[in-house]
């Protein structure tokens, strides 16, 4: 995927490793373990991210973690991060209040190359936390309607309580821009839910698509890829029409620390967004 080299820009900026402190302006609960943070850059600057890129979030004293930008660059003046409370840093982030600051480096990594998607039918398939980066692309399609063909939003979560961005999923379900399908793997006893139940792979066969003019974007946990891609291939979609976003725990985000390598590729630099045919033969990729 496309990557912009930052060499020229870096010469002016103080350091590659210096976080910029940004203010949290809104916090909302997505699920019992996930929160959405709306953040503003200093002096009203834009982050200038592309859909699918990530930032390194710093909490001083605890370090940094990579988090995907969950909002589209078409929504100016702020950016959003959907964060699961998974460990030391994300737990501290969850304790922050509106008005507090977090350190941000980035945006980094490759992105969903929307220029190449123009005019195509889009299958936006995400599972679990994968909706966080996918949302940046869904919002982009929403704001740039007309640039893309028929657009499907396909999302699967473990259980109803784990469904992210419930309000927006409802809006997308009611919108004429998208054909939206949501499923959960199972319903714990005593849960009130009347939607589709079953693995995300069950949502794919019934879709009415024109494979030759489609692009499938798949973001989710590693186990999901193999099975979803198998279903997509059955529908006539080829590897070079599939885009995936991979992750490895990242320490630097800029191709230096070595923690995110997949054979000769760096997930932070050459990814996280890859065309599937670039990585399908690489050992350990998915």
């Amino acid at each position: 995927m496309a990557v912009e080299t930052k060499t020229e820009k870096d010469k002016d900026s103080a350091s590659l490793y210096r976080p910029v402190f940004c203010r949290i302006v809104r916090i909302s609960d997505l699920t019992p373990t996930e929160k959405l943070f709306r953040i503003e850059m200093p002096e009203g600057r834009d982050l200038n991210q592309k859909p699918g890129q990530f930032v390194q979030v710093s909490i001083l004293g605890l370090g940094e973690a990579p988090i995907s930008v969950s909002s589209s660059p078409t929504r100016r003046g702020y950016f959003e991060l959907g964060v699961r409370n998974a460990g030391a840093l994300t737990n501290a982030l969850h304790q922050l209040k509106v008005g507090d600051e977090v350190g941000i480096r980035g945006p980094f990594g490759t992105f969903f190359d929307v220029e190449k998607f123009k005019g195509k039918d889009m299958l936006l398939i995400s599972g679990g936390c994968g909706l966080a980066p996918m949302r940046s692309l869904i919002q982009y399609c929403e704001d740039r309607r007309g640039e893309f063909g028929k657009t499907f939003v396909i999302y699967g979560a473990k259980a109803p309580a784990d469904v992210l961005y419930k309000d927006e999923l409802e809006i997308w379900q009611g919108s004429d821009i998208f054909e939206t399908h949501v499923t959960v793997d199972n319903i714990p006893q005593g849960t009130c839910y009347d939607g589709h139940v079953g693995l995300i792979t069950t949502l794919i066969p019934p879709l009415e698509i024109e494979p030759e003019k489609s692009i499938a974007v798949v973001v989710g946990p590693p186990v999901m890829y193999r099975f979803v891609i198998m279903e997509l291939k059955k529908k006539g979609i080829r590897e070079e029409q599939i885009v995936v976003s991979l992750e490895r725990y990242m320490k630097c985000g800029v191709g230096k620390c070595g923690h995110c390598t997949i054979e000769h590729l760096y997930c932070c630099l050459d990814g996280p967004v890859f065309w599937f045919n670039e990585i399908s033969n690489l050992r350990g990729a998915i």
Partner: peptide, 18 residues
């Protein structure tokens, strides 16, 4: 060239090291 990055806090001063 691989490195780890971590923060240390001492007397109110945070030091990030690699």
């Amino acid at each position: 060239t691989c490195f780890e990055v971590y923060d240390r806090v001492h007397d109110g001063t945070t030091v990030r090291e690699r």
